[in-house]
Structure formats: C-alpha cells, structure tokens
C-alpha cells in the first residue's frame, strides 16, 4: 500500500488543531484558577516541540531531525547523570559516555544500520568498563559501569531509534513515509499513556505495579483505546495491514506501560518525588518514559515486516 502525503498532513494538522485548542483551554483555565499544572504545562510544551521537529524534518530535510533527536538524547542523559549517585573518581567516564551521542547519531545520519544497532550494545558495553578501570580507582566499579551503560542504552540507544524511523523507509528526498511512522508511534504511545491514566483514575481498583497510578483497569482500558487507534490510523500513516496494525497497537500498549513503570521505579529508587517535574529532576525522563521502550519495539516491528 502506498502512503500518501496528504493523509499524513490530515493527521498532522488535526493534531496541531487539538494542540492549539488544548493550549488555549489551559491558558484560560490558568487565568481563572490562578495556578499552574506542571504536568499539563510540560506536556503541552513537549508536543509543540514535537510539532516543530516534525515540520522541520518534512519541510527542510528529514536528516536534519537527527540533530534534534540528538539534543533530546543529550538532555535525557544529562538528567539521568545528574540524578544518579556516582563515584567522584569516575567523573571523566561520564564525559566519555556523552561522546557516544554525536557518534551514535552520526551513524544514523549516514544511514549505517549495522553500526547504529551495535555501537552502544557492543562497543560502548566493552569500552565503558575499560574507561572506569583506566581511572585507577575500582571502588564502586560495578555500580558505575552498570549505571552508566544502562543510561546510555536507555537515553541514547533507545531514543535514537525514533530518529532512525524517519529515514527507515527508502526515499531520496523528503520522506513522508518516515514522518508518518514517527507520528504513528508518537500518537499511539501518548494515547496509551493518557487513556491508562484517565481510565485508571476513574475506574482503577486493582494495583498492577509499584506506582499507585498503574492499575489493571487502566492498563486494559488503555490497551483497548490504543488498539482501536492503531487500527484507525494505520492506513493513513503506515504501510501496516489490518492484522499487523491491531497487533502493533497491542505491543505498543504493553511496551509503553513497561517503559512508564521502568522510569517510575528509577525515580522511586533515586528519591525523586513524582510531582517534581522541573527539568533536571525527572522532567525529560518523565516525558520520554514510555517512548524509550516503544521506539525500539516499533522500529524492529516495522523493520522486520516491511523494510
């Protein structure tokens, strides 16, 4: 099935319209109640950023978006490194770990799939412990190696899959197909989060995982909504056939849930309060939590079946 650019733009402009309405409603609500809802505020800002990246990628060049996702990756990794306990002696290894960001995104830029897929899981996996050893202080060796490499996997490797989605479909000029894939996974992930949250708050009884906001009712409701959305949007944004699109909604719903629980557990362990959403204290991580899992899941799903 051929993807048509005007379908993608219909979905995109509806998204922008919803965003404008939500932004205006929020502004009105804020003026009336004289207070701010950090979660809503940051969510809106995040979506405007995504809209901007999307427009730049489609209008100018899809590869330019690589740099933007590199920047998001950098923000996420910086936040993670600020939050985790670390050995003072291993400070420079953090610096070394940051260097993985430009390199990883460069592989994407030149479309070197083989290197993109093994660079952090293999080469960084081998190099990080060696760099820690080079500092000459092996106290807390395992903690440093484990947390630094885990951070790279999540904040750089996973997030970079979103970037690669853009250039996954073979195309020389402006890549509408890649843009469609990106929109699809972004919308489904966010819809799943929101549906889980709203349904769980209204009907949630049975706790599913450590954070109290996650419930069986929310999970099931979120999954139903996500599968319906994945089925409806698939013909407009992706080459997925009906059965593949239903199953895609199913795995993205589970993946998004796992990603959200993952970051919740991390924040609990580091003593970050859920309401503390200031950047640097759970802000970027909270926004990207479910996407960190869904990006590689969706990427490999598409890579296996279609590209």
């Amino acid at each position: 099935m051929k993807i048509q650019s005007h379908h993608i733009f219909i979905v995109f402009w509806s998204l922008v319209s919803i965003l404008i309405i939500v932004s205006l409603l929020y502004k009105w609500w804020k003026q009336r109640k004289q207070k701010e809802l950090q979660v809503v505020h940051i969510s809106i800002r995040f979506w405007w950023l995504m809209v901007g990246i999307f427009l730049i990628a489609v209008i100018i060049h899809s590869r330019l978006s690589v740099a933007f996702f590199g920047l998001i990756s950098f923000l996420a990794l910086k936040e993670f490194f600020t939050l985790i306990p670390n050995a003072r002696a291993h400070r420079r290894v953090l610096f070394f770990a940051y260097l993985a960001i430009p390199t990883q995104f460069y592989w994407i830029y030149i479309k070197w799939y083989g290197m993109f897929i093994i660079y952090i899981p293999v080469y960084m996996f081998l190099l990080i412990p060696f760099m820690v050893s080079l500092t000459g202080d092996s106290h807390r060796f395992l903690r440093s190696v484990g947390s630094i490499h885990w951070g790279l996997m999540l904040m750089v490797f996973s997030i970079s899959h979103i970037s690669y989605l853009f250039i996954l479909p073979p195309s020389s000029e402006v890549n509408y197909e890649g843009a469609g894939l990106l929109l699809y996974v972004l919308i489904l992930t966010r819809v799943n989060d929101t549906a889980h949250f709203l349904i769980g708050r209204r009907w949630g009884r049975h706790s599913l995982a450590s954070p109290q906001t996650k419930t069986w009712e929310g999970f099931t409701g979120g999954m139903i909504v996500t599968i319906s959305m994945s089925y409806l949007l698939a013909p407009m944004l992706t080459p997925l056939n009906a059965i593949h699109s239903l199953f895609c909604g199913f795995i993205l719903s589970i993946g998004g849930f796992m990603g959200a629980v993952n970051i919740s557990s991390l924040k609990y362990d580091l003593g970050v309060k859920p309401e503390e959403l200031i950047p640097g204290h759970g802000g970027v991580l909270s926004r990207l939590d479910s996407l960190m899992f869904n990006a590689p899941i969706f990427f490999h799903y598409m890579h296996y079946f279609y590209y």
């Binding site: 936040e79 490194f81 420079r92």
Partner: peptide
C-alpha cells in the same frame, strides 16, 4: 560535580 577545583574537564550536569 560539573567542574570541581583542579580538574579542567567540564562534565555536563544540571
């Protein structure tokens, strides 16, 4: 953490 006394390497941290 980002730039302690006596170490010229700047590590990006909030």
């Amino acid at each position: 953490k980002a730039l302690p006394k006596g170490d010229p390497v700047l590590v990006p941290l909030f």
